Computed example of a mutant assay.
Amino acid sequence: MDADIIISGGGVAGLSAAAIFGDAGFRVICVDPAPPVTERDVEGSDLRTTAFLQPAQSLLDEAGLWARLAPHAEPLQVMRIVDAGGEVSEPRIIKEFDAGDISEKPFGWNLPNWLLRREMVAHLEGLETVEFRPGTGVSSLFTREAEARVGLSDGSKLRCRLVIAADGRNSTVREAAGVPVKTTRYGQKALAFAVTHPIPHEHVSTEIHRSGGPFTLVPLPDYDGRPSSAIVWMEEGPEAMRLKDLPEAEFEAAMNERSCLLFGPLKLASRRTVWPIISQVAERMYAERVALVAEAAHVVPPIGA
């Protein structure tokens, strides 16, 4: 065997799996056709964020990865839901849920996806059991009861005991394994970007609901000395594309109206990215010698995460 486990996908899920299995002593090879983008303000960086809830944080801690992530993690202490429906974009009903009511820890910890990739890749470099091959993808899959044989885009062929599909909603491994998916499209898109604001978020994640979809502000560490949040703004597809292409001043005016100014005037602090909103579920989350994880197994809209 060339490895115990071959992981297809070098995103947050694939790199997490590589760190966890590598720390457990398994020989892991992780591949991804595209080198990970590990800088915030370059083309192709993923400006979405990932919230690690308590069980996920504990798992990463056991694997020795959390110590590297903790300095960059923003606690999610309070979940605030705001009804801002009606003709005017202003709060009508506000409900807050505090993690302190049920636990000594926050609900979770939020980190930007581009930063997670940077820190996870750096962590894997210190694991003798893990080999990360960015720029190389899976091109073929052949399985039997005893093993899997994986062909890579560089022409090499590897044998392993398990293949993990962490290669996203359009998973090459899932397709090669013959696992069908059911996809639902909602006609919505999500704008993802970062902002700064004068009023500190105080570790509060805020969802502001109106027609078109929620406008969610998730706490980030300060940026350029100012409080900062990541925003996921869901809208009907054409409206989301219109907003993305607005001049910056007009876009800021629109997002400030939509935010109800709960954190004061928002200032755009990154480029704007757009993501399609779909639900997708694999018929099963495994095949012979194959396991599906993350978006290769199931995709949920941000509001359902």
Results as ranks from 00 to 15, higher is better:
1 M>I: 09
2 D>C: 07
4 D>C: 13
7 I>N: 04
8 S>E: 07
11 G>M: 03
13 A>E: 08
14 G>T: 04
14 G>S: 06
20 I>L: 13
20 I>D: 04
21 F>L: 15
22 G>M: 07
22 G>V: 04
25 G>K: 06
27 R>C: 09
29 I>C: 10
33 P>I: 10
33 P>R: 14
34 A>M: 06
34 A>C: 05
36 P>A: 12
39 E>T: 07
41 D>M: 13
43 E>D: 14
43 E>N: 10
45 S>L: 07
46 D>M: 05
51 A>D: 08
52 F>S: 01
56 A>G: 13
59 L>N: 08
62 E>S: 08
67 A>Y: 11
69 L>W: 09
70 A>S: 14
73 A>I: 12
74 E>G: 02
74 E>L: 03
76 L>C: 04
78 V>H: 04
80 R>T: 13
81 I>M: 14
87 E>R: 08
96 E>V: 01
97 F>G: 03
97 F>K: 03
98 D>T: 01
101 D>E: 10
105 K>Y: 12
107 F>V: 02
109 W>Q: 06
111 L>I: 15
112 P>C: 06
113 N>Y: 13
120 M>R: 01
120 M>G: 03
121 V>Y: 02
128 E>Q: 10
129 T>I: 06
129 T>Q: 12
130 V>S: 02
131 E>A: 14
132 F>I: 00
135 G>Q: 05
139 S>H: 01
140 S>T: 12
145 E>W: 05
146 A>K: 14
147 E>D: 15
150 V>N: 01
152 L>W: 02
152 L>F: 07
153 S>W: 04
154 D>E: 12
155 G>C: 05
156 S>K: 13
158 L>C: 05
159 R>H: 06
159 R>L: 06
160 C>M: 02
161 R>Y: 03
164 I>Q: 00
165 A>M: 08
167 D>H: 07
170 N>Q: 15
171 S>I: 03
171 S>W: 00
175 E>N: 14
175 E>M: 15
176 A>I: 00
179 V>Y: 00
181 V>N: 01
181 V>F: 01
181 V>L: 05
184 T>L: 10
185 R>D: 13
185 R>H: 15
188 Q>F: 03
189 K>G: 12
190 A>M: 04
194 A>P: 00
194 A>H: 14
202 E>F: 07
207 E>K: 04
210 R>Y: 12
212 G>N: 14
217 L>I: 09
222 D>P: 06
222 D>E: 12
230 A>M: 04
231 I>V: 15
232 V>M: 04
234 M>W: 00
243 L>M: 11
243 L>S: 05
243 L>I: 07
244 K>L: 06
246 L>E: 07
247 P>K: 10
250 E>Y: 11
254 A>V: 07
259 S>A: 09
259 S>E: 07
262 L>H: 05
263 F>Y: 12
264 G>M: 13
265 P>H: 11
268 L>G: 08
268 L>Q: 13
273 T>Y: 09
276 P>R: 10
277 I>V: 15
278 I>T: 14
286 Y>D: 12
286 Y>L: 06
287 A>W: 00
291 A>T: 09
292 L>R: 01
296 A>V: 10
298 H>M: 11
299 V>S: 02
301 P>L: 03
301 P>T: 13
302 P>S: 10
304 G>Q: 12
305 A>I: 03
305 A>R: 14
